[in-house]
Simulated assay, not measured.
Amino acid sequence: MFKYNMRGENIEVTEAIRNYAIKRLSKLEKYFTDSPDVTAHVNFKVYADKQAKVEVTIPFSFLVLRAEETSPDLYASIDFVEDKLERQVRKYKTRINRKAREKQVDLTVPLVDDEEVAQREGDGISIVRKKRIALKPMDSEEAVLQMNMLGHDFFIYEDAETGGISIVYRRKDKKYGLIETDDLEN
């Protein structure tokens, strides 16, 4: 059961508003089996142009759900925010389930010989998958587009300008990084 912390800016949070928000947001609880210490922070704002804004933040130890919506009707804003949060939860659950399935497949079908894995495990390192790729010449912008199309967090390519091998990657702040390699000659 969630706990609710509700605040109003330029509006008094009446019992009717509070009950409606709790009724809508409590629908999210069915997705979480263990949420005893979770506090949903709900902010209501009303602007001079009669627009009503609802902001909801629900911090879990493994995920932060956050959504906001502005509309002329406060109750409609609550509905829209709940819909957004539910989509976020479903997307997160789908991603977790997909990763669990992929890990299970990777562990049961290694691409290297079992004997080779056993030899490597003695060192504390276990390579369970091996992949070869053909590097295509392109610029960093095209590499980022390819990475996003594939849904990966990094992409290795041959830099069309320098001829060297480069890597683009997605950072935690959702921006991109570029690693360029140097050609070491002895």
Rank of each mutant, 00 (worst) to 15 (best):
128 V>I: 05
148 N>Q: 14
156 I>L: 11
157 Y>G: 00
22 I>A: 05
158 E>R: 15
70 T>F: 01
93 K>H: 10
177 G>W: 07
22 I>F: 05
107 L>Y: 13
7 R>Q: 11
119 Q>H: 14
133 I>R: 08
80 F>T: 09
26 S>W: 05
35 S>D: 06
29 E>Y: 00
178 L>Y: 03
3 K>C: 09
61 S>A: 12
59 P>Q: 11
182 D>K: 03
183 D>R: 12
144 V>C: 00
66 R>T: 03
84 K>P: 03
58 I>K: 06
35 S>A: 12
57 T>A: 07
52 A>V: 07
94 T>Y: 10
99 K>Q: 14
169 Y>A: 03
5 N>W: 13
54 V>M: 04
51 Q>F: 07
133 I>M: 10
15 E>C: 07
149 M>L: 15
79 D>A: 05
74 L>G: 02
165 I>T: 04
148 N>T: 09
100 A>F: 11
152 H>E: 12
54 V>I: 04
12 E>S: 15
112 V>L: 14
109 V>L: 13
45 K>W: 08
74 L>R: 00
91 K>D: 02
164 G>L: 14
180 E>M: 02
38 V>Q: 04
60 F>A: 07
15 E>L: 05
175 K>V: 09
163 G>I: 03
170 R>S: 08
145 L>W: 11
55 E>D: 09
65 L>Y: 01
109 V>Q: 13
101 R>E: 14
77 S>G: 04
22 I>M: 06
2 F>K: 06
66 R>Q: 08
13 V>C: 00
67 A>P: 02
133 I>A: 07
54 V>A: 06
94 T>R: 08
122 G>H: 15
52 A>D: 01
171 R>I: 08
33 T>W: 14
26 S>I: 04
99 K>I: 11
122 G>E: 15
114 D>K: 14
161 E>Y: 09
111 L>M: 01
138 M>P: 04
80 F>E: 01
72 P>I: 06
92 Y>A: 02
15 E>D: 08
67 A>I: 03
9 E>H: 15
88 Q>F: 01
158 E>P: 12
135 L>Y: 06
186 N>M: 14
186 N>D: 14
130 K>E: 04
154 F>I: 07
115 E>W: 13
70 T>Y: 02
27 K>E: 00
50 K>N: 13
34 D>W: 09
1 M>N: 13
78 I>C: 02
40 A>S: 04
32 F>A: 00
92 Y>S: 01
174 K>I: 11
156 I>D: 02
181 T>I: 10
85 L>I: 02
103 K>F: 09
144 V>F: 00
51 Q>C: 06
61 S>L: 13
45 K>C: 07
173 D>Y: 07
67 A>R: 01
3 K>I: 10
83 D>P: 00
115 E>Q: 15
96 I>A: 13
99 K>Y: 15
4 Y>N: 01
53 K>S: 03
84 K>E: 02
174 K>M: 12
148 N>A: 14
174 K>Q: 13
164 G>S: 15
98 R>E: 07
29 E>T: 02
